[in-house]
């Protein structure tokens, strides 16, 4: 069990709606090990984002158990959840969600401000992350001056800068062309291999699926298959 990063059992999620509850996730049983490069794959509305939000402690399940790095999501106080996110989790979104008023450097530095790090330590970490993603020449640029591919690389740098154990990437290639998609996938794969960071994607993009080592298919909130490719 020690190497299990995420353990989900008998988990379901209901959203209250006008006509009763809507079950977005039904009886999910899954676990993710350290160092995985896996993805939740399914059509739009199948519950991928809901699942990532729960794993990311931004939401919590209605029933069942979700343990992330040993913490039961449902039992975390808002402070504990924030702590979990700031120390151990990185997020990447479909839209890059950089803070437009800050430079590339500042966007990447931002997560480190929540951790008690000296300016020098922060500088080192930021430069390191920007180097991984080939952004060292864009330090002073603002998001508006960057292409979509570059923005998403900044977002990945921001997720990676604190070297989290787990990165949750919600349709990270949805707004990118093939070339940029492949580029960032290469980079994430490299980070996964070199740093041992675990990645969980949500996607319905075949290019991403081809990169995944493990593919979990979700239809209408239910896991219909879970395949790990042979190495």
């Amino acid at each position: 069990m020690e190497d299990k990063l995420v353990v989900i059992s008998k988990m379901s999620k209901a959203f209250p709606t006008g006509e009763g509850d809507f079950l977005a996730l039904k009886n999910i049983n899954l676990s993710f090990a350290k160092g995985e490069f896996s993805g939740i794959v399914g059509p739009s509305g199948s519950g991928k984002t809901t699942m990532l939000n729960i794993i990311g402690s931004l939401d919590s399940q209605t029933e069942g158990e979700v343990k992330v790095m040993g913490y039961e999501i449902k039992e975390l106080s808002s402070k504990q959840a924030a702590d979990l996110r700031s120390r151990h989790l990185g997020f990447i979104f479909q839209t890059y969600n950089l803070l437009p008023v800050y430079t590339v450097y500042e966007n990447v530095e931002f997560p480190l401000l929540l951790l008690s790090m000296s300016k020098e330590e922060r500088h080192k970490a930021v430069m390191q992350a920007l180097e991984w993603l080939g952004l060292t020449d864009k330090i002073k640029s603002r998001p508006a001056q960057l292409s979509g591919g570059q923005c998403q690389r900044v977002a990945i740098a921001r997720a990676m800068v604190k070297q989290p154990g787990l990165v949750l990437a919600d349709e990270p290639t949805a707004n990118l062309d093939t070339e940029n998609s492949l580029h960032i996938l290469d980079m994430m794969k490299k980070l996964n291999q070199e740093l041992g960071t675990s990645f969980i994607f949500s996607t319905h993009d075949q290019k991403v699926i081809d990169y995944l080592r493990r593919v979990i298919r979700l239809v209408d909130g239910e896991v219909v298959s879970d395949d790990t490719k042979a190495r």
């Binding site: 700031s86 997020f91 969600n97």
Partner: peptide
Amino acid sequence: GEFGIRLAIGEEKK
């Protein structure tokens, strides 16, 4: 959007 991303990064609402 900004608040959302800051929450995801690990800030508390407070």
